[in-house]
Amino acid sequence: MLQGVNRKIGLILAILSIGYLYMSYQLPTYSYIPVDADAVPKTLGWVLLVLSVALIFSKDNDSEEQKAKRRIPKTDVKALLGVVALLLIYIMLFETLGFIIMTVLFVYFCSWFLGYKSHIVNAIVSIVFPVAIYSIFVFMLQIKLPQGILPF
């Protein structure tokens, strides 16, 4: 099982390096330059391929502490996926709804989702911080952040 981890990662990396190598060999070449744009990528691709093969055949020497990191309890997996989902939604709607609305909602719901129970404090924090940052950027520094559907 433990050797399996290195084998799997090695395999994934080997596939990645082959993809990268394939793209390196597609790069256009120019006659006027002694070391072309594809030289370094090709080298890197081959080196990574060799290293990932080496990884496949190497023993897993990680400490027990390190191995413990790989076992994530199910509740934590759910929490992580939830945060990633919130982030994805945030990014997708960021420019449509605007900085303030999205950030306020994100901070509030992300904290709630992670188990923060004091809703009043949560509401205050999640409104004050984004609004403050927005004002600093937009009004003080004249750097535009997406205003979205709000009129300011």
Binding site: Y108, C110, S111, L114, Y116, V121
Partner: peptide, 8 residues
Amino acid sequence: PLLISLVL
């Protein structure tokens, strides 16, 4: 939880 949201 709040700190996490703010870091993000």
